Simulated assay, not measured.
Amino acid sequence: MDESQSLLATARARLEESLLAKGLRRSSERFAILDEVYSRNDHFDAEDLYEAMQQKSYPVSRATVYNTLELLVECGLVQRHQFGDEDNVKSRYEKSLGRQQHAHLVCTVCHRVKEFCDPRLHLIKTNVSNSLQFQVESHSLVFYGQCTDNDCETKPIDSHVRE
């Protein structure tokens, strides 16, 4: 069994435990949604997930997708992020098992999300915990700006170029 299959098996077991503890039905739809989430390596919104399920001809309602995402967040299998500004906040999700702590870069033009890891973030968290006598359970760092990818909808104009 490879790492991704092992991770999915762990996620499925945790979902099953959570459903049993809450007295909820162990429906095939919930597990199919979990499978789709754990097949992805991106940050997605509920509509992205719904469309992926439709493209795979899996008959699941939009409401089931939204409700299952909430359930997956509650049992720690999915992490929700609120990316955007105060006028345009959008929930994005990513699988959480098997992921190392990371921070995000969000392009304000094409809305792509990139991840990065920097060991200094862990050091900062540790220093803050120790100096302020505060047990940090989680943290989030998001940088907003404009990416310089060639396929970004609107690349930044080089200020040194004159017409």
Rank of each mutant, 00 (worst) to 15 (best):
T68S: 12
E70Q: 10
E86S: 12
R112C: 14
C110V: 08
N41W: 10
K56S: 15
S6Y: 11
D158F: 03
G23Q: 08
V89W: 08
K22C: 02
V60K: 01
A9I: 09
G76T: 03
A21S: 11
R162L: 15
Q135G: 07
Q100L: 14
L123I: 09
C110K: 12
D48M: 09
L8R: 03
C147M: 09
C110D: 06
S18R: 08
H111F: 07
S28D: 13
S91K: 03
A11G: 11
A63H: 14
G98I: 05
D151R: 00
R14H: 13
R14W: 12
L34D: 02
L123T: 03
Q55K: 13
C107T: 04
E51T: 07
L8S: 01
K22Y: 05
A32I: 01
Y50K: 05
K22S: 04
N67G: 01
L97F: 03
E29N: 07
H102E: 06
R99C: 11
L77W: 04
V37H: 02
A9R: 06
Q79D: 04
L71P: 07
F143R: 03
L24S: 04
R120P: 08
Q79H: 12
V128T: 05
G145Y: 07
H122S: 11
R120T: 12
L15R: 00
K56E: 15
Y38K: 01
V60N: 00
F143Q: 00
M1T: 10
T148R: 14
C107R: 02
L69H: 05
I124E: 09
F134M: 10
R26D: 01
D2H: 10
S57I: 02
K155T: 09
D42Y: 01
R120A: 12
R99H: 08
S61P: 14
Q135D: 13
N127I: 06
R62F: 03
P59F: 15
G145C: 12
E29P: 05
T126E: 09
K155C: 09
L8I: 09
C107I: 08
Q54W: 10
L71E: 15
L7T: 09
L34R: 01
C110L: 06
R14P: 10
R12S: 14
E94Y: 07
H122P: 06
E163C: 15
C152Y: 02
S138L: 01
L72R: 03
H139W: 11
F134G: 05
T64S: 11
E36C: 06
L105T: 05
V65P: 13
T154G: 05
D149T: 02
L19K: 00
H102T: 01
D87C: 02
H139Y: 12
H104D: 06
Y144N: 03
S4E: 13
N150L: 15
P156E: 15
S57Q: 14
F31M: 04
L132S: 02
S39Y: 03
H122V: 10
N41Q: 05
I33K: 00
Y144I: 03
E70W: 06
N150S: 09
A11W: 10
V106T: 02
